[in-house]
């Protein structure tokens, strides 16, 4: 009898929790991804990245194109770190170290942001 009630309770307690997480999560995740990809176009990312880079003191007066590398602008690794932190603030994200070490140009910044759904 006790075992039976336990079974009953555990069935009720466990099942709905399981099924709800199972059903709900994928929908939430995918709808978020769709929304984020939709809200920020490649052109907008490009424009904002170029905006952030051109605002940097040492870059003023130089032309920045989407393919410009930081080296071409006369920037060293400390300057690139500066710019990446500014990009992080602009898009409300945090670029992990291993990614940040790889980014050396506007194009790489843009492609990183393209595959980062949390960028806004």
């Amino acid at each position: 009898m006790i075992r039976n009630t336990f079974k009953l309770v555990s069935n009720i307690a466990v099942r709905p929790a399981f099924s709800s997480t199972f059903v709900r999560q994928p929908i939430v995740a995918s709808s978020m991804m769709v929304r984020n990809y939709g809200s920020i176009s490649e052109k907008e990312i490009t424009d904002r990245v170029i905006g952030v880079v051109s605002q940097y003191d040492k870059v003023s007066g130089k032309t920045v194109t989407p393919t410009t590398t930081f080296k071409e602008l006369g920037l060293d690794s400390l300057d690139s770190a500066d710019i990446l932190v500014a990009v992080e603030e602009e898009f409300g994200i945090e670029i992990p170290d291993e990614e940040a070490d790889k980014i050396t140009s506007c194009a790489e910044t843009i492609s990183y942001l393209r595959k980062t759904p949390t960028a806004k």
Binding site: S77, L78, A81, D82, V85, E94, D97, A100, D101
Partner: peptide, 13 residues
């Protein structure tokens, strides 16, 4: 160098 750059980024954030 990576450690220094990582520290620099954390400081700036």
């Amino acid at each position: 160098q990576k450690a220094v750059l990582s520290l620099y980024r954390s400081f700036l954030r």
